[in-house]
Amino acid sequence: MTDVDRQIERSSELLHRLSPQAQRLAHRARQRKRAFFIKKIGRVIMAGGAILIASVIFGLAVGPIGSSGFLVALGLFIAAALLLLIYPQYPEASTETLVNTDLKYLPAQTEVWLSSQRKALPAPAANQLDQIGLRLETLGPQLQTLDPREPAAQEVRKILTEHLPDLVNGYKRVPETLRRERQSNGQTPDQQLTEGLKLIDEEIAEMTRNIAAGDLDSLATQGKFLELKYRDPEGMRD
């Protein structure tokens, strides 16, 4: 790696750290993890309450549980607490989990997946990825009442579970040594990725406007959001 390459890498890392969108998305990710952990604590408290109530009922119906009964109840509480704290684990989003995610939760899960991908991308593409994440903040509430059987809902699902992951994963399959080399189309894979993400960002923005306006027919018939080379991960190798 030359000095120029090292400088570019350091600059990219700096942009990753300073991006306001990235900081906002990271903050939202921390909030989700914190909420998930708080729910776990709540389940532990409920389990402890249930064991305490069962012990009281047993004591009233049968007789005092005594020290041995107390130890049994304590052991049950510890076992339940450990089990509830370990399982379920925080769900990490992947392309497979996105496909199976309910529509109303899809934007949030996509946002989680985006956060896990940005470190593998060049700075301009990572910043574009952050912009898409912010778009999903607006799209998420709109999907809460959208019928999953609507053609518009199917279009949303196709973009978030197929085209966006295909674009990012296709880029990641390109060897790092080739990512800054111009291809036959005159662009580098880095540039193709950034342009593809920009098109997806624009399409999500258009979706948001159409859903807000109730123009679901227009949303369902849009077919312009990606050119063929961006839909085809192998197109980056041309």
Rank of each mutant, 00 (worst) to 15 (best):
92 E>V: 12
125 A>L: 00
162 E>N: 14
177 T>H: 10
16 H>F: 00
165 P>E: 05
219 L>A: 10
65 I>R: 08
83 L>V: 09
82 L>Y: 09
109 Q>R: 14
57 I>T: 12
24 R>S: 01
187 Q>S: 14
168 V>S: 04
205 A>P: 05
24 R>G: 01
150 E>C: 12
91 P>E: 07
127 N>K: 09
65 I>L: 12
50 A>G: 07
136 L>E: 06
61 A>G: 04
60 L>F: 12
87 Y>G: 03
146 L>T: 11
166 D>V: 05
54 A>W: 01
227 E>T: 12
40 K>I: 07
22 A>L: 00
212 A>N: 15
173 R>P: 02
123 A>L: 00
115 S>H: 02
25 L>W: 00
115 S>I: 01
234 E>I: 12
189 P>Y: 03
131 Q>T: 08
158 K>T: 12
50 A>C: 05
68 S>G: 02
203 E>I: 05
171 Y>H: 07
159 I>C: 04
227 E>Q: 15
150 E>M: 13
129 L>E: 01
210 N>M: 15
225 F>D: 02
44 V>A: 06
230 Y>H: 15
176 E>N: 09
192 Q>H: 10
80 A>K: 03
14 L>R: 13
97 T>V: 04
158 K>V: 07
180 R>N: 11
155 E>Q: 12
47 A>M: 09
13 E>D: 13
30 R>A: 12
160 L>V: 06
182 R>V: 12
33 K>Q: 15
105 Y>K: 13
32 R>P: 04
193 L>K: 02
32 R>V: 03
2 T>M: 02
173 R>K: 13
144 Q>D: 14
13 E>A: 14
49 G>D: 08
71 L>N: 11
41 I>V: 14
64 P>L: 06
174 V>N: 08
139 L>P: 03
98 L>D: 03
143 L>I: 08
165 P>F: 08
41 I>F: 10
182 R>W: 07
116 S>I: 02
185 N>Y: 11
52 L>D: 11
74 L>D: 02
203 E>V: 05
106 L>K: 06
48 G>A: 09
73 A>N: 04
15 L>R: 07
234 E>G: 07
214 G>E: 08
16 H>C: 01
56 V>L: 14
120 A>Y: 06
230 Y>L: 09
35 A>T: 11
27 H>C: 04
212 A>W: 03
198 K>A: 10
82 L>D: 09
97 T>F: 03
141 P>M: 08
107 P>S: 03
207 M>G: 11
157 R>P: 03
25 L>H: 00
88 P>T: 05
95 T>W: 02
178 L>F: 12
3 D>I: 09
238 D>N: 13
82 L>N: 10
158 K>G: 05
62 V>I: 13
174 V>K: 08
141 P>S: 08
218 S>C: 06
131 Q>W: 02
130 D>R: 00
177 T>R: 13
128 Q>H: 00
203 E>L: 05
188 T>R: 06
94 S>Y: 00
236 M>T: 06
102 D>A: 14
170 G>I: 07
168 V>G: 02
3 D>Q: 13
134 L>D: 01
233 P>R: 10
215 D>Q: 13
213 A>F: 06
184 S>F: 11
176 E>W: 04
87 Y>R: 14
106 L>N: 06
238 D>W: 10
16 H>Q: 02
227 E>W: 12
58 F>M: 09
112 V>M: 11
7 Q>M: 13
93 A>W: 05
222 Q>I: 10
